[in-house]
Design a protein around this nucleic acid. Structure first.
Lengths: 226, 226
DNA sequence: CAAAATTGATAGTATTACTATTAACTTTGT
DNA sequence: ACAAAGTTAATAGTAATACTATCAATTTTG
């Protein structure tokens, strides 16, 4: 199992960064504190000068790791989706029943994140909050097609693929497994956002979670029970 | 019918603008050409100086209508959702069967927009494209709670309410009508985006439209047929 | 036709999102 | 142990952004 897992370690497409932040202390500090700072003040108000102030480093040093804050955002969301993919593989690995696999997969992408102690410099709870608020801003840009060609959104898309495959295993005649999978992934972020800010347009709360809503939705849509 | 419809004319909460753009020629030109320009260069690269150049007007004059480009974006998305709400009321008005109502409602919020000749200075086809790319940026900000309290997102939320009510009319025992409605509205924009840019994570295309996908999803989810 | 409102022109500011250069410091190979 | 290579810090600078302020010219309105 160790060899299987090592193949799907958190993997970020090079080209997103100028210098891999995992290879130095400063790099790790950039990642650690960018998560804290973006979560605190929001992506629009975040910049490398402020981040430099927080980590006691110069703005220009951060620019040697990332050519822009946009690229840093893509790095963070890629890390997050790669980490989610890792959980999908790890937690579904031992499940044989297709429906149980699907339920677990839905749980993984819709649940509220809990801290993972494996990656000491990354606070996954805060990163999840960043993804809820900022994920769509990473691709809703004029440069999306170029960046997509360079593979910058592969982590995100692989999570969708994996879920669509599990859906197909449950119901091979269902025609919209990709659209359903992408709707779960994007929709979960949206439900988490509106349950905090637009409470009147969701039934989700601490009791009725997005996981309940999407599990019911998916199982009915692909007619596993009825 | 005329008196009914006049109550739900396009209605924008004041406070979004400093001066109502509908009350002057310059105001209408600002709206008309901001739609064209934002669609062309994207919201990030759009600014009032460039807009002024296009309409032959001074930057400072535009600032008398909107205090920021962010407020202008909220104006445009509010206009769009108010226009969608108008269509929901108008096109569903004469339908008596609850399931047919729901199908029509899903069609209205998921279809590709066609030009409406009623509003001469607004190109609804371009505005729909802006909404696909930029809608979420209007509320994914640190100021969302303040602006929500001021009613800036009412048009969007009213569209979700109306759809959730139609869902409840079809199945009064279904527990997630609001979450389902908000997932359709947000999910439709997402499917339209990814069918243009991330084709590998959707089954939607010109033949299998988002309308087909969501109609099937909703009817199965609330178990209208089985 | 005078008062009020609107628009245009110009100027100015603080901040952003970088780039460039050079010097100081740290790591690495032999 | 030490020179070479690589990394980081400090400083300076730039073009653009997102505004605000002022005042004159023009248009609208009562």
């Amino acid at each position: 199992m160790d060899s299987l897992l090592s193949n799907i370690k958190i993997n970020i497409p090079p080209g997103i960064y100028l210098k891999d932040p995992e290879t130095s202390e400063l790099g790790k500090k950039i990642i650690e504190h960018s998560i804290i700072l973006i979560q605190d003040i929001g992506f629009e108000d975040f910049n490398f000068k402020k981040l430099g102030g927080v980590i006691g480093s110069n703005e220009s040093s951060i620019y040697r790791y990332f050519e822009s804050k946009h690229k840093l955002l893509i790095y963070l969301t890629s890390w997050y989706w790669s980490w989610i993919e890792y959980q999908l593989v790890l937690e579904i690995f031992s499940i044989t029943n297709a429906e149980e696999k699907l339920k677990k997969a839905i749980e993984i992408v819709t649940r509220t994140t809990k801290q993972d102690s494996k990656y000491s410099h990354i606070n996954e709870v805060l990163l999840n909050k960043i993804v809820i608020y900022e994920n769509s801003k990473s691709y809703l840009t004029k440069s999306v097609d170029t960046e997509n060609k360079e593979g910058f959104f592969m982590s995100y898309k692989r999570v969708v693929y994996r879920i669509s495959e599990i859906i197909s295993q449950c119901n091979s005649t269902y025609q919209y497994s990709l659209s359903l999978a992408s709707s779960i992934v994007d929709g979960a972020l949206h439900q988490h956002f509106i349950k905090s800010h637009f409470k009147t347009i969701t039934n989700c709360n601490t009791k009725n979670t997005p996981t309940h809503f999407f599990t019911n939705l998916v199982l009915n849509t692909i007619k596993i029970h009825g």
